[in-house]
């Protein structure tokens, strides 16, 4: 398969199940909502070292937020619900609560599974906090120095979230690889239910499970896709390719990831790109397989096992 002369390899991205929440942060201006969201999603690229994965999902005009202010939604992923609660308490408590003018709302109100991060954070009010119920949802008014921090008591959990969707951009050189990856990120930006947790949405250090040399490593460099190692390893880098970048996607559903992969791959197929591939680990990592041919054709993804 080819898209505008770029080869689409007959392979699949292998992904795994995660838990996720959507947090909507509003503020007096989009600038301050973004400030809080950027801090909240800092150091959250990979579950391997950051204990969660998070990024901004999209921005909202005042007409679409619960309090008629500009807002930003953040998706945060962990491997289990308990971790989700801990990470939310840490991150909302240290980054959103502290940020001037912000309020914090649940972005998955229909979910029956809940994590009570707001209930824990209310204690910052030291007994002066006030509970309010509106439309069956409980909010906490926590007194702070610029007035009050308003946050929702519980946040809905998406138990069928997926982490680790991905595709690889194999290019003639680093300049073209980066330009293609940037185009993919721009195309995916704002799509609902999906985030790209790595810096600027792009990862250069794709990894494999474990390591050859160091037994204590959970993950190590994906030597098969390192152009500098082509003579030294069982390389998958085709001739003429001198740089590879990876787009990693976490999503609230397989459909969201597949849709974003489809859009991103299409945008990445541009001059200087030789091929599009995907990272899989021989079934070691997770039960979800996004076959590139299915993704591009828009065929529904089936859980592999």
């Amino acid at each position: 398969m080819e898209i505008r002369g770029v080869a689409i390899e007959d392979t699949f991205a292998e992904a795994f199940g995660m838990r996720a929440v959507r947090v909507i942060i509003t503020a007096v201006s989009l600038r301050w909502a973004r400030e809080a969201a950027l801090k909240m999603t800092g150091f959250a690229t990979s579950i391997i070292g950051c204990r969660c994965e998070a990024a901004v999902e999209r921005e909202f005009p005042p007409s679409e937020t619960p309090d008629s202010r500009p807002g930003v939604s953040v998706l945060l992923f962990t491997m289990n619900s308990e971790d989700l609660g801990e990470r939310l308490i840490e991150r909302i408590g240290q980054t959103v609560l502290t940020c001037p003018t912000t309020s914090c709302f649940d972005g998955l109100p229909e979910s029956p599974d809940r994590v009570a991060a707001g209930r824990a954070l209310r204690a910052f009010g030291d007994g002066f906090q006030i509970s309010k119920i509106l439309g069956g949802r409980r909010y906490w008014r926590v007194p702070v120095m610029d007035g009050e921090f308003l946050l929702e008591e519980t946040f809905g959990i998406q138990k069928r979230a997926i982490g680790g969707g991905n595709f690889l951009i194999l290019a003639e050189d680093a300049v073209h690889a980066l330009a293609a990856a940037e185009a993919a990120v721009a195309a995916i930006a704002g799509m609902p239910g999906v985030i790209l947790p790595f810096p600027g949405g792009i990862a250069r250090s794709g990894s494999k499970v474990g390591a050859r040399t160091y037994s204590n490593m959970i993950a190590s460099t994906n030597d098969a896709y390192c152009p500098t190692l082509t003579p030294l390893t069982d390389s998958k880098v085709p001739r003429g390719v001198n740089a590879v970048l990876e787009i990693v996607l976490d999503g609230l559903s397989a459909e969201a990831i597949a849709a974003a992969m489809r859009v991103g791959i299409d945008a990445a197929c541009r001059p200087g790109v030789v091929a599009i591939s995907a990272g899989n680990y021989g079934g070691k990592l997770g039960p979800y397989q996004f076959h590139l041919s299915d993704v591009i054709a828009g065929r529904p993804m089936e859980r592999s096992r």
């Binding site: 619960p66 309090d67 008629s68 202010r69 309020s103 006030i130 309010k132 509106l134 439309g135 909010y139 008014r141 007035g147 009050e148 921090f149 308003l150």
Partner: peptide, 17 residues
């Protein structure tokens, strides 16, 4: 004298609901 975030949420709720 301040701008209560909850009032803002409440008023928006009354308008929409």
């Amino acid at each position: 004298t301040f701008e209560p975030p909850f009032v803002r949420l409440l008023m928006t709720y009354l308008v929409r609901q």
